[in-house]
């Protein structure tokens, strides 16, 4: 608890510092008398702690007293079902087949990731892992890349948006999306993965995702035209998808 106490003290101190200019000058502490030898002899005034409301200008303060709860990790069963639902409504084995595709080592089997995802093993008395660790995040990435790549392959082909699973929008042909076009499409994905509109997200989120998209396209631009893998459009939207499916807000609730 010591670290948090120290941090809170730090926060409080800085917070007080920010508002210091508005506070009235405090009553100065009397200078203690000293004897010939230099030792302090006068009585040290006793400081009585004041309540916040006694500080001039702070008579009426709204206090955020609502109890707070720490975010929870989405249970692995709900996470797996969400993967199935968000990426096409297939069963686990059907989705596994689709993700493995015809090669490329994009995906192994669900069994290979269960331990890293924290699935309990009741027979072996291995409990559910309700905290993240680096290996779990590595599993989120491995799975997320496979899911997003397959979604890009299917959705970014020419088909009506209503038939698309993840990228439920059209993309302009032969050019990159404008900022405004990206924003509307970003909102569709934000609702899909996080369950709320992008307008309610932190303001820096949209520009970050947009930059991610632009940078991925720019990396492709430096490669030969016939380089293997996704083209600029597909790569950039795959990368955006990776960011959503690996985001803390996706895995916490």
């Amino acid at each position: 608890m010591a670290r948090r106490a120290a941090a809170l003290a730090l926060v409080t101190a800085l917070g007080c510092t920010q508002g210091a200019a508005d506070e009235p000058t405090p009553t100065p502490t009397p200078t203690p008398s000293q004897d010939a030898g230099g030792a302090v002899t006068a009585d040290v005034p006793v400081l009585r702690p004041r309540t916040v409301q006694e500080i001039p200008g702070h008579e009426s303060i709204a206090q955020d007293t609502a109890p707070k709860e720490a975010p929870r990790l989405v249970p692995v069963e709900a996470l797996m079902r969400s993967y199935m639902t968000l990426f096409g409504g297939l069963s686990p084995l059907q989705l596994q087949t689709r993700l493995r595709g015809s090669g490329g080592n994009l995906f192994d089997t669900w069994n290979d990731y269960l331990s890293a995802l924290g699935v309990p093993d009741y027979a072996a008395d291995i409990p559910r892992n309700e905290q993240t660790n680096a290996l779990m995040l590595a599993a989120f990435e491995r799975i997320g890349v496979a899911l997003c790549d397959r979604a890009v392959e299917s959705d970014l082909a020419a088909m009506p948006p209503t038939q698309k699973v993840v990228f439920r929008f059209d993309l302009p042909a032969n050019r990159a999306v404008t900022d405004a076009e990206f924003a509307t499409r970003f909102d569709v994905l934000h609702r899909l993965f996080f369950g709320y509109p992008a307008s309610l997200a932190p303001p820096e989120r949209l520009p970050r995702f947009r930059q991610l998209l632009r940078d991925a396209a720019a990396r492709r631009a430096t490669q030969p035209a016939n380089a293997p893998g996704f083209n600029a459009t597909r790569a950039s939207w795959a990368v955006v998808c990776y960011a959503f499916v690996r985001h803390p807000e996706f895995h916490l609730y």
């Binding site: 080592n105 994009l106 990435e141 890349v145 795959a238 990368v239 990776y242 803390p248």
Partner: peptide
């Protein structure tokens, strides 16, 4: 053994630079 599969990355469609960019942004 289960770890090796979790840590494997296939540079089939995107590259490590793409994934690392995502990690940095996240």
């Amino acid at each position: 053994d289960s770890v090796s599969r979790v840590l494997t990355r296939a540079n089939v469609n995107t590259q490590a630079a793409d994934r690392n960019a995502v990690t940095m942004m996240l």
